[in-house]
Amino acid sequence: MGGLFTLGSSLIAEAEQTHEGLSYLGLWVNVLFVLAILFGLMSYAKKGLNERVFKNPITQGFEQVYLFIENMCVVIIGNHGRKYVPMVMVLWLVIFTGNIVALFLGESPTADLSFNFAMALIAVGYVQYEGVRANGLFGHVKHFAGPKLGGVLVIISGLIFVVELISEVLKNVSLSLRLFGNIHGGHVAVESMNKLGEPILVPYGMFLLPIKLLTCVVQAMIFTLLTCVYISLVTHHEEGHGERHAPAAAH
């Protein structure tokens, strides 16, 4: 049993030899690179904003993204979800740009666990902030304890409270680790497939490009989608909407 796991970890360690995490400065360079691309696109798209019909293709793309995210927010969170659109859209844009950069370069912010963890912390922290703002501090804490139970069942409430706290922490881990695993795993997969095709000089890894492109979009979407679900969970008690998502989110 132990040998099994040492095998697995040694495999990962081998992968890590080629892909140790970015250094502090390297992460800064990557983040600034991504932000430069993002801001360049945005300022280019801003020029086409004043027309009656958006002819600028970049502007059209941003418009589509905006409408998509607005739709997502409204469907998942409800009618008051429109005010979370900017926050969710910034997350989406950063993740998507980072993923696209990761398609072509070996390193990218989203392929770095620390950056993803920062994003997840921000997202979940924002969710907690919204929860406190919507329900009050006490109401928000009470929300962790699950449904109201009387008598001896208070113990169960306490258990639920602990479980919910753990799940709240795990939200961070799950969000960041998912993104990291997908993007970084894509890199590793490409590397190993390239190694596979080395003897006959065929870069097999390049054939993974389409599925990696799909992963880019899907991962950006899942990150923002889960953020929306978390927001809807903490801000949506009165309309009975959150209960339906509860089993899905209470992992």
Binding site: I222, L226, A248
Partner: peptide, 24 residues
């Protein structure tokens, strides 16, 4: 469906990245 995909995938990622460390 995508949400469910995400959770299933998470289990795999956890098993790959976290479990070896914990066991070690």
């Amino acid at each position: 469906m995508l949400i469910a995909f995400a959770f299933v995938e998470l289990v795999f990622l956890l098993s790959v990245f976290v479990a070896p460390g914990i066991v070690k």
